[in-house]
Design a binder for these strands. Structure first.
Lengths: 147, 147
DNA sequence: TTAAAATAAGACATATTTGTCTCTTTTACA
DNA sequence: TGTAAAAGAGACAAATATGTCTTATTTTAA
């Protein structure tokens, strides 16, 4: 096993990207999203509840309710979804699992890993959903096609 | 949760680094290693059994037995330990968990993630344990000091 | 005002990972 | 040659992650 993001987080990222590829202010229920992303409806609900609680996604209850992006795609970065679901531990802990790994007491790959980790953080922080929109639409359309 | 390597793999990497920092051909039993790395003896046995099976580590049964590096530190790379324990999936699967992510059907961060992933693979493949030896010794000594 | 359709919340079930224990086999050495 | 100390193997237990279900609440619209 090796994981970058948990399944929950992967789904959260996919769902938010999915919403960002739709018309502004359009509303999607968990059923719709689950069919498009090909994952269980209940799992979608669960994950989007987390993202609703952290303010990235908005929700509307009741008939004709659903989920929507709570902010403009331009103001949302992937790192926020990661932070809300998995937390940012992976950007802090020693990759080799050594206790007390730090600048003063570095592990054998501390510097090199630190660089990679910073690059990864950068990648998830710099681009917003608007920047990714075109690629996202292409990918979502492909998913629907192969459903 | 976010994980780069599993606990087993972290321990495997630590144990192999530990052995590489010791005198050539010296033999360490799981008790010794567990005390130095501050992890349960049984877990050390389990993980080193895996690495023994894959030929990276050697073992000697019976009284005064233990584990040792089966090859010269110069000929062992961290990626081998990762490959033996966690496998190389993380270097192949889509970071967002999309099905069918490929050059033809890339996810929105395919190229950028691919670059980072390649860099990480590079880092684990290029340096051998000999290259890391000095840093490893420093870190191991620090661990022992804080035990 | 009522029925239907949606999220919210949390309990529950299953799968996987992590960690522990026991028994067997092997080996050194007294 | 017998005993102690080690790895090997696999069963078992506990913790965590993943996935499902049920019930409550909210909202729309007939």
């Amino acid at each position: 096993m090796t994981v970058i993001f948990s399944k929950k987080c992967e789904l959260g990222l996919q769902a938010v990207l999915f919403l960002s590829a739709q018309d502004k202010d359009s509303l999607w229920n968990s059923q719709d999203i689950s069919e498009n992303l090909n994952v269980p409806k209940e799992f979608v609900s669960k994950v989007l509840q987390t993202l609703t609680a952290s303010g990235i996604v908005g929700s509307k209850k009741g008939k004709a309710g659903g989920f929507f992006l709570n902010r403009a795609p331009k103001d949302i970065r992937l790192i926020e979804i990661v932070s809300a679901i998995d937390g940012l531990d992976m950007f802090e802990n020693c990759v080799l699992g050594f206790r007390g790994c730090s600048v003063e007491k570095p592990c054998p790959v501390h510097d090199q890993w630190g660089k990679l980790r910073a690059d990864a953080y950068e990648m998830l922080s710099q681009q917003n959903l608007e920047d990714l929109k075109e690629k996202t639409i292409t990918k979502i359309n492909d998913l629907i096609r192969r459903r």
